[in-house]
Amino acid sequence: MSTELTESAVPPPTEHSAAPSRRTFIATTTAVGGAVVAGGLMTGPAALAAETGAAEAPPSSRVSLTVNGKRHALTVDNRTSLLDLLREHLDLPGSKKGCNAGACGACTVLVDGRRVNSCLTLAVRLEGAEVTTVEGLADGDGLHPLQQAFIEQDAFQCGYCTPGQIMSGVGCIQEGHTGSADEIREWMSGNICRCGCYVKIVRAVEQTAHGK
């Protein structure tokens, strides 16, 4: 019932910061025939190479993948995780880095419909993959029922684990592991919530799974 905080409530950066670009060292993505192509992801401005007297760039590969319905053709450093690709290069920081080691679940996304830890997924391996992140879950202005349930049940506090919880919950519901509260607890245990919202996370998943 209450009013919602919008992104505009976030204090803007100081005056001179211009257009958003976490992509300074990535070539700008440009739409080409419906696809989005980025070139020269890793090579960076020549000035930098000169400054550091650097030799060749680290091994990189070309990969095309779909993220939230949008195709990207990119060149990525082979070491780049899907999580870092999303957060640092594709301007999709909704997926969170909590441990970067598969031990917390904050980075959970769907890859080809399955919930996985994006921190342990090398982006270079995702040729042809379909990735869904929390940013791609809502249908326009209409929230996914689980997103709505998280708000109604107050299934989060700080909100940092929330995208991972929600993506994991979507997976959990798709897999059908929602037969009881105990089953949900077990199958949602790959997502740590340090604020301790588990009781309400279970309720939100239950509510969504059973269409309550």
Binding site: S2, E7, P93, G94, T133, L143, D154, P163
Partner: peptide, 19 residues
């Protein structure tokens, strides 16, 4: 009441320090 920042948090639009 539900959280006024709820929508931002469940859609991944809440901006944390590194973001």
């Amino acid at each position: 009441l539900t959280r006024v920042d709820g929508r931002l948090k469940v859609t991944g639009k809440a901006t944390y320090a590194a973001e």
